Simulated scan of single mutants.
Amino acid sequence: MAVFQICAQVWLAKSLLADGLAVASQALLASVFAKKDHYKVAVTTARVLQLAVVLGVGLTAFLAAGMWFGGGVFTSDAAIISTIHKGVPVRWSS
């Protein structure tokens, strides 16, 4: 249960960070749709997609490294840290 809570809270934090980009994107797209500027709609959509990919890759790398190396921040129990490491798909050592 401890591992589930740790992973759920980390996932929720990551989800809320991504929601910030989503809300800002919706506001930008609503603005250019209201002006009926189709060129800016295409440019804004392309830029939002670029930012979403960068955010996704960046958060994945940060969280994988953070959960692997920083699992001890949440607890000092070796069994819980070991289980957290099993959930991280990246293996940093052999």
Rank of each mutant, 00 (worst) to 15 (best):
A42D: 13
G56M: 12
A46V: 13
A2F: 08
K40Y: 11
A24V: 09
H38K: 15
A65M: 02
G20K: 07
L59H: 01
Q26K: 12
A22V: 13
Q50Y: 13
A64R: 08
F69V: 03
V43F: 06
L17G: 07
G66K: 05
L21G: 06
G20F: 09
T44D: 01
W68Q: 01
S25G: 04
G70V: 06
V41Y: 02
D19S: 08
K14T: 13
S25I: 00
A46P: 09
S31P: 01
A65K: 03
A18H: 04
D37C: 11
A18S: 15
T45E: 14
L63G: 02
Y39G: 06
Q26H: 08
G72Q: 05
A64W: 02
V23T: 13
Q5W: 06
A52L: 13
A65C: 10
A24Q: 05
K36I: 00
T44Q: 10
R47D: 09
V3H: 04
A2W: 05
G20Q: 05
V41A: 06
L29E: 02
V53L: 13
A22W: 03
L16C: 05
L28A: 04
F74N: 00
V23P: 01
T60D: 12
Q5F: 07
Q9G: 09
G72K: 05
C7T: 05
Q26C: 11
S31L: 03
A24K: 09
V73S: 01
K14N: 11
L29M: 15
D19E: 03
L63N: 11
K36D: 06
F33Y: 06
L49R: 15
F74Y: 14
G66D: 00
V32L: 01
D19A: 09
M67W: 00
A64P: 03
D19V: 14
A65E: 00
F62S: 10
F69M: 05
T45P: 06
A64E: 05
A24T: 09
K36Q: 11
L16T: 09
A8I: 05
F4K: 07
F62L: 12
C7A: 13
R47Y: 07
A2T: 15
F62K: 01
Y39W: 10
Q9A: 13
G56I: 02
V10I: 14
W11C: 15
A13S: 15
F33V: 06
V10Y: 02
S76E: 14
Q50W: 08
F4P: 00
A42R: 07
A52R: 09
A27N: 06
F74V: 12
A13Y: 10
K36W: 01
S31V: 07
L51W: 08
L16S: 07
L63F: 04
